[in-house]
Amino acid sequence: MTESERKTEMVASEKKSKGHALVLPYPSQGHINPMLQFGKRIASHGRLATAAITRFIVSTTTPNAGHVAIETISDGFDDAGFASNFLTNRTRAFTDNIYPATNQILLQEMNWLASVRRAITIGPTIPSVYLDNRIPDDHRYAIDLFRPETSACKSWIASLPPASAIFVSFGSMATLSAAQFAELAFGLAATNRPFLWVVRSSEKAKLPPGFPDSTVKKNGGMLVSWAPQLELLASGKFGCFVTHCGWNSTIEGLGLGVAMVGLPQWTDQCTDARLGEWKEASRRAMDDGGSSDRNITELLDKFC
């Protein structure tokens, strides 16, 4: 369905719908995708859902939002993107200075919120086909800001036995130091197991000298600049997921039941790393009548 067709359908449906929800995600992949998945859940309950996405994001990708309408907005960074500018120039310096306290502050805020108003939880916010399969054609995320090496990855895993390989990825924003890269490289080499390691182009210079040729060949591993992570974790070929514990990666590991080794770097990642024990609960939450399903229904009945 084209964007114009989606808008026409939205206008026609608005007269029949009980309500209309607007989702406004932060302009980065790790925020846009779960918010659009939330929007799809709202739409599946018979409400209209619209996502406000920045012009830069829409100009660099083609959102696959299903029945969620997309409207563009400006954040003042239409040429390069707010997230890129902000994270490059400010955020890392900020978190380096005060992050040791932010995790505790976050936990205190969550406890305070729960004491004054009942928190409504939803999720995991990953495509329905990997969970309850109740939303037709919801088999992938809405956007991908990097081009995944899908064919190469699928060819590589095709001959692997189940749960035999290690998947390593630190998401679209987290950065490791050269020392961390070296420790991780030596650790992977010592496992004597095949591994698929996602190393963004901007990070490849941090790999130890000779690592790609020697260790990759020895272990039967593979390096890629970006990968279709959700599909790979769902393949059953990986017995271990080494992750920075970003929100999307954490809920994917939980929802798909892949054992995780967490190497959190900053912001919410240390908090996310504590959620690794909730696999079964996370899957039940999305089932018909599960806690997330009930909470979405309650939220929409109250406000939409």
Rank of each mutant, 00 (worst) to 15 (best):
F186L: 15
S291G: 11
A69T: 10
A190N: 15
T62R: 00
Y26D: 05
R193S: 11
L275T: 10
I296D: 09
G220D: 01
H244G: 12
T121Q: 02
L207Y: 04
N295P: 09
V258M: 01
V11L: 14
K217I: 08
Q104Y: 12
F86K: 09
P208R: 01
W278V: 05
A285M: 13
L196G: 09
A205Y: 09
G221T: 07
H45F: 08
Y141D: 07
I135D: 00
V116E: 14
N219H: 07
K15I: 11
F195Q: 04
C245D: 12
N64Q: 11
T91C: 06
L256V: 02
H244V: 10
A185C: 05
A93R: 05
R284K: 10
E231I: 06
R294Y: 10
K217C: 11
A273V: 05
K16W: 07
R283P: 12
F82G: 07
H31K: 00
P63L: 00
S74F: 07
G187R: 11
P34D: 00
K7H: 08
P148A: 04
N248L: 10
A179P: 08
T62A: 05
R6S: 09
A165N: 00
Q265W: 10
W247E: 06
G220L: 01
S282Y: 08
L300C: 14
A142L: 03
Y141G: 09
S159V: 10
Q108D: 14
L232Q: 02
N85V: 15
L176N: 06
G246R: 01
D137E: 03
H45S: 05
Q269S: 09
E14T: 07
W112E: 15
Q108V: 04
S74G: 06
A281V: 14
S159H: 11
F38I: 05
P264H: 08
S249R: 02
I143V: 14
A49W: 01
F186H: 15
P127E: 02
G19A: 05
R147F: 03
L87Y: 08
E5L: 12
T125K: 01
Y99I: 04
